[in-house]
Design a binder for these strands. Structure first.
Length: 657
DNA sequence: GTAGGGTTAG
């Protein structure tokens, strides 16, 4: 027997040339008298293998692969796991169905090694079905072949894809049982990711804590998980412990804050990220842009847009940044700028279209939203569930009931999208706003989904517009059960009672609020000055240094408006007090203070942009509208629902909101 | 082979 060096044994194993004492052939039986291949021949074969692998790597079509496969057979290397594994991997990369070709090649190899098994397992993991990947794993174990760490990462990734946490746990168990794989950083990180994506944060944390070493990927996976669960304290804590923070880790923090409605913190972290010398890419920027969208300030909007352009991620060439910018400009009150971005983009995807349709919708441009939706269908960008929310909301705000019903019908039949509770909410809103409250109630009772708080909330909102305490009571009863601490619902019901003059019921609801110790969300209006500074106004605000002057300006304005026919809408003060007192209360509304401040401090050609945290009341709406005419100023108010553009006495919402 | 992304109604 020839004695082989360890290195040579390794080479032989790697190239899987069938040597009797290392491999147990199944069929056909090898001729044991066959002489060993001389070393020079081995080197030649190894060279040929490397050559074929390299050719396979550059294959971009199935025809090419088939040609190389024929060559592999001609050269007698069809039993070489090294080459065949590459062949299978390339087939998977081109997304050729495993069962049609790769599986056949695999079945013709007498002694597949763990890498070849893993290549097939990975193929099934990517393409599905998961069962076949697991079956292959079982076969591998029955053949007594030890898996490699990549076998586990492939299987775990497949479990992550279909959120099959039970199977994932079994594979976790296997990796522990077979020997130390869980300590492999790749397997450990994939396990963390699997548990995170399946919503088992505790398990993910346990794997993280038990890992002998952790890298930036382990940290980031967990940071993202905490951020997604809304726990930015835990996320920050981990981030602080992370010694080497890279772009992805920083981005995870910026995104976390942006997704948890902490836009200022998101921007702070972005600044720190830049100061630490880490690069920025399109993903970072998309989150920064989302944070700016939440701030709603044009100053930040323009700053981030310039920044994106300067860093080479301008909206023209970058669909991710472009789509985020469309949404941002819409939310900052400039649907015109949003549309400019949309038009400048070279490529548009479903995000770009959905953001633009949503932008038109929140600005009351129903016709534009519908036209864009129809154009989208023509250019073959498939709408998704969010697109439909946008287009249905557009119909709703414009009172286009039949058109909305048509689009709703299209969802399942034309686009294969099952309407979700969000879409039913849009339909309830559509019918409710149009005054068809009974129909809306009937839809709730007959729809195939269990109604949630949004559904009843939409109905209650419609009852406020149409002053219908009867239906409101039905909606409120459900809402108080589903959202017992939702202060807005109690307030809304009390307003509905107030507008019907049912003061006893009003006081009953107020008592309920007190008994539950709920605190009313204070009304807050923000306004941007010409330097981009933001000023906050609460109702009846006396904190602002210019408070007296602001109040005086407001009173002067209202006096002038009254000359032109303005009558205070007293029902907007839902209290059982005298008309004089109601008028005084109306004067304290935060958006009126913000308006007066802007009139006082900004130049005549400057658009006044006000952001309010609650819905604008009818009286303020009327004042804004008339003030836009009297002062020849353009006023944009963003309330918690949508935008109102007041120009020359007319609002873009058509007084229908 | 493992980590980060934009759009959602009352």
């Amino acid at each position: 027997m020839v004695s082989l060096s360890k290195k040579l044994i390794k080479t032989l194993r790697r190239s899987a040339i069938l040597i009797p004492q290392f491999y147990e052939p199944k069929a056909p039986a090898l001729d044991l008298h066959e002489p060993f291949i001389p070393v020079s021949k081995l080197q030649e074969t190894k060279l040929l293998e490397a050559q074929l692998v390299s050719i396979l790597d550059s294959c971009i079509s199935l025809t090419e692969i088939k040609r190389v496969h024929a060559r592999i057979i001609r050269k007698g290397l069809d039993q070489c796991s090294f080459v065949v594994t590459k062949l299978v991997r390339v087939l998977c990369k081109l997304n050729t169905p495993i069962d049609t070709y790769a599986r056949l090649i695999f079945s013709q190899v007498y002694c597949p090694n763990p890498f070849l098994y893993t290549a097939i397992i990975r193929g099934y993991s990517v393409q599905g079905p998961l069962e076949k990947a697991v079956f292959l794993y079982g076969q591998m174990r029955r053949d007594d072949i030890l898996p490699v760490s990549f076998t586990f990462t492939a299987l775990l990734k497949a479990c992550t894809g279909v959120l099959h946490v039970d199977l994932g746990r079994q594979i976790h168990g296997q990796s522990l049982k077979i020997g130390g794989f869980v300590q492999d950083l790749f397997v450990g990180n994939t396990l963390i990711d699997m548990y995170v994506k399946c919503g088992c944060l505790d398990f993910a944390r346990r794997v993280f804590d038990e890992l002998p070493t952790r890298d930036v990927i382990s940290f980031t996976a967990l940071i993202v998980a905490y951020a997604k669960s809304g726990d930015m304290v835990a996320a920050s804590d981990l981030f602080d412990r992370l010694p080497a923070k890279d772009m992805v880790a920083w981005t995870a923090m910026v995104t976390g804050f942006a997704q948890n409605a902490q836009p200022k913190e998101a921007l702070e972290y972005f600044e720190k990220m830049q100061n630490s010398g880490v690069n920025t890419d399109e993903v970072t920027l998309s989150s920064v842009i989302s944070a700016c969208a939440q701030l709603g300030a044009i100053k930040y909007a323009n700053w981030v847009r310039d920044f994106a352009e300067r860093s080479g991620f301008g909206p023209t060439d970058n669909v991710l940044v472009g789509s985020a910018l469309i949404d941002m400009y819409s939310k900052c009150g400039s649907v015109e700028d949003a549309f400019k971005v949309f038009e400048s983009m070279k490529d548009r995807n479903v995000f770009s279209y959905s953001s633009m349709i949503g932008g038109f919708s929140m600005h009351g441009c129903a016709r534009e939203a519908i036209e864009l939706f129809e154009k989208m269908m023509k250019v073959e960008v498939k709408p998704n569930k969010v697109t439909f929310v946008g287009v249905l909301a557009a119909c709703s705000h414009a009172g286009l009931v039949e058109q909305g019903q048509h689009f709703f019908g299209m969802m399942e039949n034309g686009c294969g999208i099952k309407p979700s509770v969000d879409h039913y909410t849009c339909m309830i809103d559509l019918l409710g706003r149009a005054g068809r409250l009974e129909e809306a109630l009937e839809l709730i009772q007959t729809m195939p989904i269990e109604p949630n708080g949004s559904i009843w909330g939409a109905l209650l909102g419609a009852c406020r517009i149409h002053r219908n305490p009867k239906v409101a009571e039905i909606a409120a009863k459900q809402l108080f059960q589903l959202e017992p601490d939702g202060i807005g619902n109690y307030v809304l019901l009390s307003h509905i009672y107030a507008s019907a003059g049912r003061w006893e019921d009003v006081s009953r609801v107020r008592k309920l609020i007190r008994a539950k110790r709920l605190i009313k969300t204070p009304s807050l209006s923000m306004v941007e000055d010409e330097n981009g500074g933001l000023h906050n106004f609460y109702s009846d605000d006396t904190i602002h240094p210019e408070s007296k002057l602001i109040k005086q300006t407001l009173q002067d304005l209202l006096k002038r408006l009254k000359v032109h026919g303005y009558q205070p809408i007293l029902s907007s003060a839902p209290y059982d007090v005298s008309d004089e007192e109601k008028e005084r209360i109306l004067l304290t509304h935060s958006e009126k203070l913000a308006l007066a401040y802007s009139l006082l401090t900004t130049s005549a050609n400057c658009v006044i942009r006000i952001i309010k945290n609650l819905r604008i009341c009818e009286d303020c709406h009327s004042v804004m509208s008339r003030a836009s005419q009297l002062t020849s100023r353009e006023i944009v108010v963003r309330d918690n629902l949508r935008f109102h553009h007041f120009r020359k006495g007319i609002c873009s919402c058509g007084d229908f909101w």
